[in-house]
Design a protein around this nucleic acid. Structure first.
Length: 697
RNA sequence: GGCGAGGUAGCUCAGAUGGUUAGAGCGUCGGAUUCAUAACCCGAAGGUCAGGGGUUCAAUUCCCCUCCUCGCUACCA
């Protein structure tokens, strides 16, 4: 834990090239990672900050099909969007690479091959869905059909987007291929499994014993997984978009994204050094430098991610690296929780988000404001809420009124009394409040550094603001504007006060840099400051006496109600669109013949008994009188009906459905339900009482 | 249902290996001030630390139960 490290390798989760970056991503991953790296650089550490677009996986292929363009075109488009908004937002990656680059293919294939040759993988042939027309195996996402839960006609094989149920392709009614509409058939295919179970005891030792300092959410998640027991996981897929396997005769097979995406960190590092040398900096180095960062145990590897990625970064990826054998493992994985927006979950598909590219257009030159708000309210220990009102208030009462105001007062006073030049500090006029101020100032770099090193960024930012408050208080206590009423006799004292206040501003110009890089840059320029490192901060002579200070105007401006209203309006519109969308009935399913319908034997039956299935949230166990027999049917309606209220009711039952086991009970049929616009389920039955067994036609 | 993380002032969040008056920022109210973007500074009010039980001289902090939120997971023929 207290190991001495010689260099840092910091990674930020690879954004998926399927959409833009929103405030949840920023608050959870990119801003904290950027603060950490900017601090480390100011602290003269050797640090490499790595990121890049993750461009494989099924969703991009589907989007490409939907937009009618090539997969490459889709990833190019989003890679560009993401890359540009990060750049403009000041996320200081040393490299932003892509997993579609040849270097990544090589790297991923090398690692795969090493594991293959070491005999790490288990090979297993299983039955998978196959599209006989397109001649391809189908990922779950590529199979659509009617959702067995809500009846939505275009549910995916892994999940129904309508009702959120998680599914498997077997569960879909009338499954069909997205590629050709053909009915998928099952066909054997071979896959390579990574035996996570073999790494279980090692992982337990490494995480549960050796990394007790990890954040509680991360540690807890890992513990949960490890204690549940790990299973082998397939690391290959039958797809044509992805990194091909480096094994002969495996055409049409690629690596599972979660196998190769984290390797993207490694290939991005290689990419960095290749680019560096190709631009002529490499005279003294060599292209093997990346190994220093990935294979030398004096390197501290830190992964910044969101909580949804914990398993992949703490369990699967480390196990893969461990199996490979020559790589270092992360020292820490400071995963953040989630950020909500105006009390609701951020959702890309529902367009409930604040998109970085749109923010940058709506609030030009206000990168630091968003950086500030998202840091001050970062979901470090629990899910947090972002509201535009809070954004406005923090800007107006913290950035404008505290920090911006302090800087402005000091510079204005300096111009007023000393023609904009830094006055000298005269020892004869030093007072206790000066000494207190300086004593206090000295403690800040250390405090801020400690918080950052422990991944407590909101606390660190709080200290920066505290220093600004201290400055404001100092001015208030010493009231140079009052002394100036008799300027000549108080000249030295006024000079001292402003000198010290300016030194505080000078310190802020660097202490704030990890958090507010644009503001820090402006300040450093206006104060004509040289380059200072963290260890030099806290000192009282950053500014040179006599140096001219530029009047840089206002650092922050107020955000008016109208701007906030506009943003709220924008959100209200997405909400309206969502509601319209969800209230629109689903389009009709494809035409069928009478024969198809006639296959369904739907009867009226009476519920004789009803009880809640133990250990289940959704299932009720019903005993039905069908007129012909009495049978048990399980139905996922527990959220909408209590057992007592439905006994005696007549319902429609699909009777000739194959029996199915759920939660250890066999269900013999399916109750037909109508789904309301809000997703709730209602029984359908005869309008008047009929005899049990009545056939529906 | 199982597992994990949370439930602390009006709001957003800290914190305590159990011990005298539970903290911060913002908001609110009062005062002071005018160099400053009606900003700053000082002060005050505001909390049975989700609810119930237990252990203890002492619990908000430890244990058990219940409720609520979020995530993972099983189930929705």
């Amino acid at each position: 834990m207290s190991k001495k490290f010689q260099r840092y390798l910091v990674t930020a989760a690879l954004p998926y090239a399927n959409g833009g970056i929103h405030i949840g991503h920023l608050a959870g991953v990119y801003i904290p990672a950027d603060i950490y790296c900017r601090y480390l650089r100011l602290n003269q550490q050797d640090v490499l900050f790595i990121c890049g677009s993750d461009e494989h996986g099924v969703p991009v292929s589907i989007r490409a099909a939907k937009e009618g363009v090539s997969v490459q075109a889709v990833v190019d488009k989003y890679d560009k969007l993401i890359r540009e908004s990060f750049e403009e937002f000041g996320i200081s990656f040393d490299i932003y690479s892509r997993t579609s680059k040849p270097i990544h293919y090589q790297t991923a294939q090398e690692i795969f091959k090493t594991l293959y040759e070491k005999g790490v993988f288990l090979e297993e042939t299983t039955e998978q869905y196959f599209d006989p027309v397109a001649g391809k195996f189908l990922a779950d996402r590529y199979i659509v059909g009617t959702c067995p839960v809500c009846g939505y006609a275009d549910a995916y094989g892994d999940q129904c987007e309508k009702c959120g149920s998680s599914l498997t392709p077997d569960k879909l009614i009338n499954p069909r291929s997205k590629l050709s509409d053909a009915t998928p058939i099952k066909k054997p295919t071979k896959h390579w499994f990574f035996p996570l179970n073999e790494f279980e005891s090692w992982l337990k030792q490494w995480i549960l014993e050796e990394h007790k300092e990890w954040k509680t959410n991360v540690y807890g998640q890992c513990k949960s997984w490890l204690e549940a027991g790990l299973q082998p996981r397939p690391m290959t897929r039958d797809l044509d978009w992805g990194v091909p396997l480096p094994i002969p005769h495996t055409e049409g097979k690629v690596m599972y994204v979660w196998f190769e995406a984290p390797i993207g960190y490694i290939s991005a590092t290689k990419d960095y050094f290749e680019q560096k040398y190709s631009f002529g900096e490499g005279k003294n180095g060599n292209a093997e430098d990346w190994k220093l960062y990935w294979k030398n145990p004096t390197t501290k590897l830190v992964h910044f991610i969101g909580k949804d990625n914990i398993v992949f970064h703490c369990i699967i990826f480390p196990a893969i690296l461990k199996a490979e054998g020559s790589y270092i493992l992360p020292d820490n994985v400071p995963a953040n929780e989630f950020l909500n927006l105006e009390d609701e979950k951020i959702s890309t598909s529902r367009n409930w988000a604040v998109w970085l590219d749109e923010y940058l257009k709506d609030f030009p030159q206000k990168q630091d404001v968003l950086r500030y708000v998202l840091t001050a309210n970062a979901p470090e220990t629990k899910d947090n809420n972002f509201t535009w009102k809070d954004f406005q208030e923090r800007n107006n009462s913290e950035l404008v009124a505290n920090l911006g105001n302090f800087v402005n007062r000091v510079i204005t006073l300096t111009h007023k009394y000393f023609q904009g030049c830094v006055p000298a500090l005269n020892e004869n006029f030093t007072q206790k409040s000066d000494i207190d101020l300086l004593e206090n100032l000295k403690t800040f770099p250390e405090k801020i550094a400690r918080s950052i090193e422990n991944y407590r960024f909101r606390e660190a930012l709080g200290y920066v603001m505290e220093l600004s408050t201290l400055g404001n208080r100092y001015l208030q206590e010493n009231e140079p504007w009052k002394l100036a009423k008799d300027f000549e006799s108080n000249r030295e004292r006024i000079g001292n006060v402003l000198h010290l206040a300016l030194q505080i501003v000078g310190n802020l110009a660097f202490l704030a840099e990890p958090f507010l890089p644009f503001t820090a840059q402006k300040l450093q320029k206006a104060l004509h400051l040289g380059k200072f490192y963290w260890k030099e901060l806290g000192s009282q002579d950053l500014l040179v006496v006599g140096q001219n200070i530029e009047n840089l105007g206002l650092l922050f401006e107020k955000i008016e109600d109208e701007a906030v209203q506009r943003q709220l309006q924008k959100l209200a519109e997405s909400k309206k669109i969502n509601e319209l969308h969800s209230k629109k009935p689903q389009p009709f399913a494809p035409e069928i013949r009478y024969d198809d319908f006639a296959k369904l034997d739907i009867r009226i039956a009476t519920i004789l008994k009803a009880e809640k299935m133990p250990k289940s949230e959704k299932l009720l166990k019903l005993l039905l009188d069908t007129g012909i027999d009495q049978r048990v049917v399980l139905s996922g309606i527990a959220k909408y009906y209590s057992p007592e209220e439905i006994v005696g009711r007549q319902v429609c039952v699909l009777c000739n459905l194959a029996p199915r086991k759920m939660m250890g009970e066999v269900s013999n049929g399916m109750i037909l339900m109508a789904e309301d616009a809000d997703g709730s389920l209602k029984f359908i039955g005869p309008s008047e009482k009929v005899w049990n067994g009545a056939k529906i036609s």
